[in-house]
C-alpha cells in the first residue's frame, strides 16, 4: 500500500504518458454479481489472487448487486470489450430472458472459465417426521399443505429443484419465500420451515453439526464433502435424466474482446483454479470443480440453459417462453 501511495503522489506530478505496454497495462476491474460474503463472492475472491499471479496484473474486485445480478451483467455488457472489465457471475443470467429480467445473458459474453458447479441437496430440520425422500413424499401426501418448503423466488435453485420434484413426484406443500438460501437455512434451524432445497456448500456445516438433516443429494454420485448423504437416484432413479444439474460460477468478458486477451485471461484462470488452497476450499464447501473454457464452456452453458429454462417453463414459473428466444427444448 505504501508503494501505491508513493506512486500516487508522483503520478500527480507526471505529465508524459508512459509507453504502451502489453495487456494488462493497467488495473482490471472485476465485477462480482452478488453481494459481499455470498458464495459467488467467496469463490471469486479466493481464486482471483492466484489468477492475478499467473496474469501478472491487478484485478480490482467490486460487488455490484441488484436485480438478481442483472445490474452487474448490464454494466459489463455496456462497457468496452477491451478486457479491462471482467464479470464474475453465477448461473442466473441464463434465465433472465424467460424471467423478463433483461434482454442480455451470457450469449453476449465470452466465457473465460466455468470454475465449478454446486450440488443441490434437500435438507430438513432435525426433528422433521421423515428421514428419507420416499418417507417425505409419503408424509406430504398424507398431510397436504402442512409441510413448509423454503424457496428463493422463481428461477433460483430451490425453484428448479422443486420443479424437478413436481415433475417426477408431484407434491402439495406450502412455499415460504426467502431472499437467499442462507436466511432460509437459518429459518430451517429455527423451525420456521421444514424442508429446504439448498446448495450443498451452504448446508454442509449445519448437517455435520446436527442442526439439519439430509433428505437427498440431488446428484448422480455421492459427494466427497458428505460421503454418507444418499443420492436421489438411489431411491428414485427416475430423476436420473434431469441430473447432474447445479448452479455454477463463471468468469466472463464481453463478446468481441480481442482473442489474445481472452487467451491470456483463460490461461490465467485455468492456472489459478488449480491452486491447492483453492481446490481445498471448493472441496470443503462441496463444490464440484469444472475448470472448463472455450467451446467446452459454451456447450455447457447452452445445455444448462436449455434444460433449466424448459424445466421452469413446464413448472409455469416463467414470464416468457424459452421458445421465443430460440432456446431449444432438451
Amino acid at each position: 500500500m505504501i508503494r501505491k501511495l508513493l506512486g500516487a503522489t508522483l503520478a500527480l506530478g507526471l505529465t508524459t504518458l508512459p509507453a504502451l505496454a502489453e495487456y494488462p497495462e493497467k488495473e482490471i476491474q472485476g465485477i462480482i454479481q452478488w453481494g459481499a460474503g455470498g458464495s459467488t463472492d467467496t469463490v471469486m475472491r479466493a481464486v482471483t489472487p492466484h489468477a492475478e499471479k499467473a496474469l501478472g496484473g491487478t484485478i480490482v474486485m467490486q460487488n455490484v448487486t441488484g436485480g438478481v445480478g442483472a445490474i452487474a451483467l448490464n454494466q459489463v455488457a455496456n462497457g468496452d470489450a477491451d478486457g479491462y472489465q471482467i464479470l464474475f457471475g453465477a448461473e442466473n443470467p441464463l434465465l433472465y430472458k424467460v424471467m423478463a429480467l433483461g434482454d442480455k445473458d451470457y450469449s453476449d459474453f465470452t466465457p473465460i472459465n466455468i470454475l465449478a458447479r454446486g450440488i443441490p441437496i434437500l435438507v430438513a430440520r432435525p426433528d422433521a417426521p421423515f428421514n428419507t425422500y420416499p418417507e417425505m413424499i409419503a408424509y406430504i401426501n398424507a398431510h397436504p399443505k402442512d409441510v413448509k418448503f423454503g424457496s428463493t423466488g422463481p428461477g433460483g435453485l430451490p425453484s428448479v429443484v422443486t420443479a424437478m420434484i413436481n415433475q417426477k413426484t408431484p407434491i402439495d406443500v406450502t412455499f415460504v419465500p426467502y431472499d437467499g438460501d442462507g436466511p432460509a437455512l437459518t429459518a430451517l434451524q429455527g423451525g420456521a420451515i421444514d424442508v429446504m432445497p439448498a446448495v450443498l456448500g451452504a448446508a454442509v456445516e449445519g448437517i455435520k453439526g446436527g442442526t439439519m438433516k439430509t433428505i437427498a443429494l440431488f446428484d448422480t454420485e455421492a459427494s466427497s464433502a458428505l460421503p454418507d448423504a444418499p443420492t436421489i437416484v438411489s431411491t428414485n432413479p427416475e430423476f436420473g435424466d434431469l441430473l447432474p444439474w447445479g448452479p455454477f460460477f463463471g468468469v466472463f468478458v464481453k463478446k468481441g474482446t480481442p482473442d489474445d486477451i481472452v487467451a491470456k485471461l483463460t490461461a490465467a484462470y485455468a492456472e489459478g483454479a488449480k491452486a491447492e488452497d483453492f481446490l481445498a476450499l471448493m472441496d470443503g464447501r462441496g463444490f464440484k470443480m469444472m475448470n472448463i473454457s472455450g467451446d467446452e464452456a459454451q456447450a455447457f452453458l447452452a445445455k444448462w440453459q436449455s434444460t433449466t429454462a424448459w424445466l421452469v417453463q413446464d413448472a409455469g414459473l416463467t414470464k416468457a417462453s424459452p421458445a421465443d428466444f430460440g432456446i431449444p427444448k432438451p
Binding site: 500516487a8 503520478a11 507526471l14 508512459p18 505496454a21 497495462e25 493497467k26 488495473e27
Partner: peptide, 30 residues
C-alpha cells in the same frame, strides 16, 4: 481510489496507466 480501490471514471487523465507505470518503476512486475 488508492486505499479503497474505488474505480472512479477516469476521463481525460490516463491515471490508471500512470499508476501502473509507476508501480512498474518501483516494484517491477508484481
Amino acid at each position: 481510489r488508492l486505499i479503497f480501490t474505488v474505480l472512479m471514471p477516469q476521463g481525460v487523465v490516463p491515471e490508471s496507466e500512470i499508476l501502473a507505470a509507476i508501480g512498474h518503476l518501483f516494484g517491477g512486475a508484481k
